[in-house]
């Protein structure tokens, strides 16, 4: 027979309720520890609300507290630390975790963007809006309970101003990300089709042609021409000839490489066309440099070989 108290609940029911609440609180603290947050309660010396997080999650006080709850806590303090949290605590902790992930600091933004990159095709802006809404709701919950703490940590800034910055940054970031995705799709669509699948090989053949041409020119220059002028003049002429001849070779330069540099430039807000053109120019410069190296090497090699066999400098 259980004894009834004044509030209509038996003592055991009251104890069970208190234990349940304490376990919920404990789950928050555990989650905070796992996530590496510091509870403000430690700093304040009495408020042990694990949901009112430190620097990352200070907006997210996800567990409303009541005076009776605090009373119950003090009664059951020694026991509850050894007990496991109940499944009831999961929604609260997961909500606070989600809210913490959507808070405005750069680390969590990166996490969101990484997640977004993993589900590139599915996730659209509407989903993001939902996530942002849930973030706002969580933040509103926090406003009810931890306004003092928030003001202490943010100074005099109102909460909306503080939220708008990260949200605006996130929007901007995501618009750039969409642009990067468009470029990616464009590059995928520009992949060589089966009928012109030999373009890579033909590009290689053009490259080999260039290298052999440079080497032959170097030999020719060493043997015949260089007594009259600089060795770089014929090389420049050859490069001009290559520019003209490149029309007659199949275009193999559609093979755009998606490098980290490309991604970084895209995410910095540089238009995709500019990047594509720059990369094209860069690759052409690389080709010319390679030709120059081969040309110069062959020239020196030829010159030294002729010198070794006793042929005088012209």
């Amino acid at each position: 027979m259980e004894q009834e108290d004044g509030g209509g609940l038996s003592a055991s029911q009251r104890r069970a309720e208190a234990r349940r609440r304490k376990l919920l609180l404990n789950s928050e603290q555990r989650m905070s520890q796992i996530m590496g947050f510091h509870s403000l309660g430690d700093a304040d010396g009495g408020d042990r609300d694990g949901a009112c997080l430190g620097s990352r999650g200070r907006d997210l006080c996800s567990w409303p507290r009541s005076p009776s709850h605090l009373d119950n806590e003090s009664k059951i303090e020694p026991k509850v630390h050894h007990e496991q949290p109940k499944p009831d605590s999961l929604p609260v902790s997961s909500m606070s975790k989600r809210g913490a992930n959507m808070s405005g600091d750069s680390a969590t933004l990166t996490g969101v963007s990484e997640h977004r990159s993993n589900v590139l095709s599915e996730v659209k802006r509407s989903n993001l809006g939902e996530i942002m809404d849930s973030f706002s709701k969580t933040a509103e919950m926090a406003n009810d309970n931890s306004s003092e703490l928030r003001h202490r940590h943010r100074g005099d800034l109102p909460s909306e101003t503080a939220e708008r910055g990260p949200r605006h940054g996130l929007d901007q970031y995501l618009s750039r990300f969409d642009e990067a995705l468009k470029l990616r799709n464009q590059m995928i669509s520009e992949k060589p089709s089966p009928e012109n699948g030999n373009s890579a090989e033909e590009f290689d053949s053009f490259r080999i042609f260039r290298l052999i041409g440079s080497a032959l020119l170097a030999i020719g220059v060493r043997v015949f021409i260089c007594k009259y002028l600089s060795i770089f003049a014929p090389f420049l002429t050859l490069q001009l000839a290559y520019m003209g001849l490149s029309k007659y070779f199949p275009k193999g330069d559609k093979k755009t490489k998606t490098t980290v540099l490309t991604a970084a430039l895209l995410l910095s807000g540089i238009p995709a066309e500019v990047i594509s053109r720059s990369m094209d120019t860069y690759s052409k410069m690389g080709d010319v440099f390679t030709d120059l190296c081969v040309y110069f090497f062959t020239f020196i090699f030829c010159h030294e070989t002729l010198g070794f066999f006793g042929l005088a400098v012209p």
Binding site: C226, S230, F232, E304
Partner: peptide, 12 residues
């Protein structure tokens, strides 16, 4: 490492 007549590599 080697020496060439200077006019051969004039601009560079």
């Amino acid at each position: 490492v080697t020496i060439l007549p200077s006019k051969w590599i004039t601009p560079l």
